[in-house]
Structure formats: C-alpha cells, structure tokens
Amino acid sequence: MGAGHAALLVLADGRFPAGGHAHSGGAEAAVKAGRVTDAASLEDFCRGRLHTAGLSAAALAAAAAAGVDPLALDDAADARTPSPALRATARRLGRQMTRAARAAWPSPELDALAAARPRGAHQPVVLGLTARAAGLGPLDAAHAAAYEAVSGPATAVVRLLGLDPFDATAVLARLAPELDHVAERAAEAARRAVHEGPDALPACSAPLLDITAEQHAAWPVRLFAS
C-alpha cells in the first residue's frame, strides 16, 4: 500500500485502454429522449448519475480495494443492476479493464478474479481490485469510479450534441466537490463492508438509467455501445 497520486492519474485517465470510450453511460439515450440538451441538463444528468449509479459503483470499487471478497462484490453488483443490458455492459467493461489492469499492474488477485469470472466481473469490482494492485486505497478507487460515472457521459455528450467541450469540462469541474463527497461516502461504506459484507454498501439506483439502457440496447443505429 501507499502508492502516491500518480498511479491514480494513470488509472483514471480517460485514455486508460479499458473500453470506456465506446460507452456513454446512458447519455445517448437521454439525448435522444430530449432530457439532455445543453450544459445545464448535462449537469443535472451527471449529478443524478453520480449520486445513484456512481455512488453504488464507487462503493463497490472501494470495497474491492479494501479487500472485500471480489466474488461477493460481483454478486452484490448483479443484485444492484436490474437491467440485463447494463449487467452485460458492466461485465464486458470489466473484462476489458481486467486485460488493461493485468498489463499495467500484474497481480495474483486480478488473475484469480479473471479465472473465476472469465466473461468478466462487474467493472467497478475490477476497478477496485486494480486500484489495490496499483497500491492505491479505497478512497482512491472510489474517486476513480465516481469520476468515471460523470466523465463518460460528459465526453459522450460532446460528441452527441456537439456541445462545447469547454462547457462539458466546466460541468465536471462544478461537480468536483460533490464527487469528493460521494467518494468519501463510498469509502466509508467500504470500511463497514470489510466487517459486515457487501450489504453495508449503498445500492442507489436511477430508474431512468435502468429503463433507457434496455431501450438503447435495442436501437439498430447508435454511436455508443451503451
């Protein structure tokens, strides 16, 4: 333990080759439905995602980084993901992240998870275990997961709406204090989960993200995989 901030920058870099660039985090469906049309509605969207799916993901990641059994966390992630399209996406991205993580920070724990879930574990669990392999702590893992929860949609909306990228980045900057707060909540829950198991983790959910993920998965023409 005890890696500095640099490893976190590597892990949270949007160019970390783990497949995230092809996913919009529900933003493509929200744009099509007219719920995201500009920087303000993008901010509302990202805030909602951050405090729901983002918090749940951050808590799973923090718990994995804290040493909670990744397979139990993977089951907990399944129970927190009612949409089959989102479960498939989470496992696909988890598998892609496993590949990148094993190259970047080889670890027996990542190998064991890959062996136990050859089709991919849920991405936040892999992210947390990757943070652990990189010598990062639960709060770092939570930060990375929470940031991903908003950076993915923000980047996607730049491509989908032609939104000014400076505006999109300003949205992320405005959300930064809330992101810190979510990460701290997630890390706190992860500390409890070490003793109480995954039930101690939040299971926050966003109805529209779940519902529209199923719709998006059925579209014949789309820019993003999810």
């Binding site: 529900g26 929200a30 439905a33 719920r35 995201v36 509605s41 509302d44 969207f45 990202c46 805030r47 909602g48 995602r49 951050l50 405090h51 729901t52 799916a53 907990a76 129970a79 927190r80 009612p82 809330e178 039930d199 939040p202 299971a203 926050c204 959910s205 966003a206 109805p207 529209l208 993200l209």
Partner: peptide, 19 residues
C-alpha cells in the same frame, strides 16, 4: 435484488435526466 431510491429535498440530481 438490492435497490435504493431517493427523491426530494436534499437528494442531489433526483429530478435530472438520469433519475
């Protein structure tokens, strides 16, 4: 199945396009 929902005052983002 495990699901938490939160709406209303002091719940950030509950009425946005994601929730």
């Amino acid at each position: 199945f495990d699901q938490e929902l939160a709406f209303g005052p002091r719940v950030p983002g509950w009425d946005g396009g994601a929730v």
